[in-house]
């Protein structure tokens, strides 16, 4: 990695290929589902497309879960071991995209779309802006002490072991997996049952936007 900004290659070519493939997969998986979810308010249960892509075929669901779940987990762990912030952001993009696909597998189509639009398209871009505005060189790194890393690693591994024990040992309530929810139902609930949180969070966004704009603004004097 060149430190002076000229010869910086943020991503290796292979990684670019993998990312392109992932994005293509995401697009292929997402597009028909979105079309169906927004068009008919649900999936047509008999058709080939919905049978294969709708997650109703167990093999497809397994493949989808292991592929994209694996990608999400791998890129999340990769974030831990990356020192360069820009690379962290790219890995986060992979995690967010893979999680969006998992939402599709979970038949939460609207959420998957929102995850891509708001999270990958908004929050992540915001974070990358943050990186750009707070560094002199795009590959700036801070050395973290080995002891700190080791302690953090041990803590996280212990935490992971404990969580695994808890999550797998708990007798969660189970039921028949529910199908997809039409967007109209979600919208109606947002404006009835969840009216108060909906309104409050819009005030929150207004207040936060004013605060963020004020802080980020350069004072002219």
């Amino acid at each position: 990695m060149g430190a002076n900004g000229e010869t910086v290659t943020v991503l290796k070519p292979q990684l670019k290929l993998i990312l392109a493939a992932v994005i293509a997969c995401m697009a292929m998986t997402a597009a028909p589902r979105v079309a169906m979810a927004s068009g008919g308010g649900g999936l047509d249960e008999g058709g080939f497309v919905s049978d294969v892509l709708g997650g109703s075929h167990p093999l497809f669901e397994a493949v989808g879960f292991y592929l994209f779940g694996g990608l999400a987990a791998f890129s999340a762990i990769a974030i831990c071991f990356t020192k360069d912030v820009v690379r962290m952001a790219i890995w986060l993009f992979a995690t967010l995209g893979a999680v969006a696909i998992l939402y599709f597998l979970l038949t939460a189509y609207f959420l998957g779309v929102i995850q891509i639009i708001v999270y990958a398209g908004g929050t992540l871009v915001l974070l990358i802006f943050g990186v750009m505005l707070t560094t002199k060189s795009p590959s700036m790194q801070f050395a973290v002490s080995k002891i700190g890393l080791a302690a953090g690693g041990v803590v996280s591994l212990l935490l992971f072991a404990a969580l695994m024990g808890l999550v797998l040992g708990t007798d969660w309530q189970r039921g028949e997996p529910t199908g997809s929810i039409p967007v109209a139902t979600l919208g109606r609930d947002l404006l009835t049952t969840y009216l108060v949180p909906f309104e409050v969070i819009s005030v929150l966004l207004l207040v936060v936007m004013i605060g963020a704009a004020y802080l980020a603004r350069q004072e002219r004097e």
Binding site: F65, G69, A72, A73, A76, I77, I79, C80, T95, L102, L106, S156, L157, L159, F160, L163, M164, V167, L168, W172
Partner: peptide
Amino acid sequence: YLVLAAIIFCA
């Protein structure tokens, strides 16, 4: 899914 979430949480 819970295990996957636990992995991402710990990361």
